[in-house]
Design a binder for these strands. Sequence first.
DNA 1: CGTCGATTTGACCTATCTCAATGAGAGTGG
DNA 2: CCACTCTCATTGAGATAGGTCAAATCGACG
Lengths: 232, 232
Amino acid sequence: MADMNTAVDLSLLNDAVPFPGCLPKAFDGETRDDFTRHSVVSRYGQHETIFFEGDPADAICQVDEGAVMLYKLLPDGRRQVVELLSQGDVFGFARGDYRDCSAETLTPARIRLTERRTAERSCSFQRVLARQVLLQLEAMHEHAVLLGRKSAMERVASFLLRLAGEDVSPEEAPVIDLSMTRQEIADYLGLTIETVSRSFSELKRRGLIALEKQDRVRIANYDAVETLATAC
Amino acid sequence: MADMNTAVDLSLLNDAVPFPGCLPKAFDGETRDDFTRHSVVSRYGQHETIFFEGDPADAICQVDEGAVMLYKLLPDGRRQVVELLSQGDVFGFARGDYRDCSAETLTPARIRLTERRTAERSCSFQRVLARQVLLQLEAMHEHAVLLGRKSAMERVASFLLRLAGEDVSPEEAPVIDLSMTRQEIADYLGLTIETVSRSFSELKRRGLIALEKQDRVRIANYDAVETLATAC
DNA sequence: CGTCGATTTGACCTATCTCAATGAGAGTGG
DNA sequence: CCACTCTCATTGAGATAGGTCAAATCGACG
């Protein structure tokens, strides 16, 4: 699992952007400079690999902007997308010293990289970390319900609602940018590409959604989709 | 009441390798007393509910001893067990002020409860929290692969290996105490009770496991089970 | 020995997968 | 502007793993 795109070279790039809003004002001892000194923002294009499962885990990552997916592969090639990440989410941790899953951008993205040592020493970082990871753990709980207990249609409906929720457009007919291929959606929802496609078609046929482009969905009947999702 | 110096326990629980630069001496401001004053160990019997989804989340929980399961219910009664917890694992968090899932003991258990406020203020607690939750998140990744991509047989085999791994008996024929009903196993693996039962029977027929009691399994052929689990 | 809940087993059904063909959209080059 | 190609998405037809329903068995306990 060698990788080349893993620009975890901490010496490169330094358009230090202030740490996302979640940082408490109170830094216990260390100054912001201690922080930025060891934290670096790296840019990635769409569909670029940030790291592979098994790579050495030298830096902790946080999504500064854009969307990232984490996935794992089984030896025979089956893939499961285990998390979809957006701004603020942290990733790249591991029990040992190696990444437990692969990370790839879904959109162009800015990723903040912090040396592991630095992060472990910093109290404020640990706070942000604990907070973020708890949010992500909660999302994983919800996703386990989806994977373990929901039908294909319920999964797709829940997926759309989740994306709609993140979106800026609040009411009326939310338009969603999937920024994922059918294959990626399938691998996230534990389905096949064909079943995802059929579900989209069925939703379209029933008039609950409209496909503006292949990866752009307008939710025409939000309430109906919500019902299908089994009160996600 | 074996242990009373709760703060130290909390920091070191499950820390085979002490967290780098995070030894319990370094309390940023708070004293050990601040900690014990707000941390309490509570005992539960087998199959007791610790809290329900939606309950107010006033205290953070950590498994001090025993096993706990977290589960979520869909409106129509379908259940998904989202996490199996053992010593050191933390739970009872929530995005808002309410628990995001229900918690029930699988065995008699000791649960350490810490006031949320206290936990949020304490730097050492945040450190333990971040560390534990990251471990749990990693376990959830693995579980997502199981739920999304593995066959019934692979799920059951992976499940047995996971329990065997936790177990003290290292080699030869590990004997596992399931301490879960078939229904609970099914709800954890995203299967039905019948499918779980059939998988056990098949494993027994092939001589890979032996059921000493209904909830006591001896893994007779560890390697074969490992193969079935698709290199978990 | 009888009862009750949990587990196992059997027979059948269906949601989803698999395999295969068709279609649609984005580039490219003539 | 029009083939041509390549990738991705859709649709169809048939196969199957696992679900459902129902009956039989087991085990603990009084």
